[in-house]
C-alpha cells in the first residue's frame, strides 16, 4: 500500500483518541500516512498528528455550524475524483465518522466496510477483521473492486503509539495543505444551533484503569449511586449497559458496548448486567472481569474471571464499606 488516509476528528482542538490509534495502524501498512482534518484550529492538531506519523495534513478548514457529514465528505470526494487517490481511508466509528463515511461512499460510489476491529495489509491489499456474534466469531473481508477502500473502525482496535523518530527534537511537522469544499447544496442545510456537554468528573470512561458498570439489575435509577460510589473509591469511571441508558437513568456518554464506548480497563466490574452480546463486544477485552449478578445462568459469567452470584444491593454496599474501612 502506497498511501493511507486517516480521518482526523478533533475534540476541543486536539485529535480524538481513536485518530491516534488509526495513525498507529496506518504506519504499519508501510506506505505514507496522511490525514484529513477539519475545524477552526487544524494547525494546533498538526503537531500531534505528526508525532503519530502523519506527513501531510489535508485541511478542510472551519465548517462553522454545519454538520461534518456533507462538508467533509464533499471535500474528500473532490480530492479523490481529482486524482489524489489513497489506497485506503480509515475512519473512526464515531457519530460524525459514520456520517462522513456514508456520504463519501455515495459520492464515490464505493462500498464501505464497517465494524472493523483489525486490518491486515501484509498481502499488499488490506483485508479487514470483524468481530461478529458478540465477538465469538471473527470474520475477514476484502473489497473486490474500487480504490480507495473505505473502512469504519471500532475504537480500541489498535493501541496508539507515537512514531519512532531519529529527529532529536522528536518532532516532525507535517505539511498542511488546505483543500476546497465543492458546493454541497441542500444536503448541507442542517445547522448546529447549540452544543451541550454532559458534566463528568474523574477519569474518562474509555481511559480509566477501572470501570464499574451498572445495568437493569440495579432495579431503580437511585441505585446507580452505588455504582458511582464504588467507581470513585477505586479511582475508576462509572459505566452502564444500554438498557439503563435507554431508560434515561444515565446519559449516553456512560454506555459501554457496540453502540457505546469500547473499554479495555485493567478491571471491569459488571453489576446487574446480563451480558448481552452487544454489551460484551464493548468490554470483553478488559484484562480482568468481575461480574455480580443474581442469576447464575447470566451469560456475563461465561467471560468473568471472578463471578459473584448474589444480590448487588447486598454485595456492593458491603464492598463499599470494606474499601472505606481500609483507609
Amino acid at each position: 500500500m502506497d498511501r493511507t488516509w486517516v480521518l482526523a476528528e478533533q475534540r476541543d482542538g486536539v485529535p480524538a483518541g481513536i485518530v491516534l490509534e488509526l495513525l498507529t495502524a496506518a504506519r504499519g501498512f508501510g506506505g505514507a500516512v496522511e490525514v484529513v482534518t477539519w475545524g477552526p484550529s487544524s494547525a494546533g492538531a498538526a503537531a500531534v498528528l505528526g508525532r503519530y506519523g502523519a506527513t501531510k495534513v489535508y485541511d478542510v478548514g472551519d465548517i462553522g455550524e454545519s454538520l461534518p457529514g456533507p462538508r467533509v465528505a464533499a471535500a474528500l470526494a473532490a480530492q479523490v475524483s481529482g486524482g489524489n487517490r489513497p489506497d485506503a481511508i480509515l475512519i473512526g466509528a464515531t457519530h460524525d465518522g459514520r456520517d462522513i463515511a456514508a456520504r463519501l461512499s455515495v459520492r464515490l460510489d464505493l462500498p464501505v466496510l464497517t465494524n472493523v476491529v483489525g486490518i491486515d495489509a501484509s498481502g499488499g491489499r488490506p483485508t479487514s477483521e470483524h468481530a461478529i456474534f458478540g465477538g465469538s466469531t471473527l470474520l475477514r473481508a476484502e473489497f473486490t473492486d474500487g480504490i480507495p477502500g473505505l473502512f469504519v473502525i471500532q475504537a480500541k482496535s489498535f493501541v496508539a503509539e507515537p512514531a519512532e523518530t531519529s529527529d532529536p527534537a522528536g518532532q516532525r511537522s507535517p505539511e498542511i495543505v488546505a483543500i476546497d469544499t465543492p458546493e454541497t447544496g441542500a444536503s448541507d442545510a442542517a445547522r448546529i444551533v447549540a452544543r451541550h456537554e454532559e458534566e463528568r468528573s474523574g477519569p474518562k470512561l474509555d481511559e480509566a484503569a477501572v470501570v464499574v458498570s451498572g445495568g437493569r439489575g440495579l432495579g431503580s435509577p437511585g441505585n446507580y449511586a452505588l455504582i458511582t460510589e464504588l467507581a470513585q473509591l477505586l479511582n475508576g469511571a462509572p459505566g452502564a449497559s444500554r438498557a439503563i441508558v435507554d431508560a434515561g437513568w444515565v446519559p449516553y456518554a456512560f454506555q459501554v458496548g457496540q453502540t457505546g464506548k469500547t473499554v479495555k480497563p485493567m478491571v471491569y466490574i459488571a453489576c446487574g448486567i446480563s451480558g448481552a452480546t452487544l454489551h460484551m463486544v464493548g468490554m470483553k477485552d478488559a484484562q480482568n472481569i468481575i461480574a455480580i449478578n443474581k442469576d447464575p445462568q447470566a451469560p456475563i459469567f461465561s467471560i468473568a474471571d471472578l463471578g459473584v452470584v448474589g444480590d448487588l444491593t447486598k454485595v456492593i454496599p458491603k464492598l463499599i464499606e470494606a474499601i472505606k474501612a481500609r483507609r
Binding site: 465469538s136 470474520l139 473481508a141 461465561s302 468473568a304 454485595v315
Partner: peptide, 30 residues
C-alpha cells in the same frame, strides 16, 4: 463489491472462579 474471505471461531475468554454470595463474597472481590 466486497467478499468474506474467512469465518472462524475467536479465541473465547474462559469463565473463571464463581462464588455464591453467603454474605461474604465482597471479601473475595477485595
Amino acid at each position: 463489491r466486497q467478499q468474506v474471505i474467512s469465518v472462524e471461531a475467536s479465541e473465547a475468554r474462559k469463565a473463571g472462579e464463581i462464588v455464591v454470595d453467603a454474605g461474604d463474597a465482597h471479601e473475595r472481590v477485595i
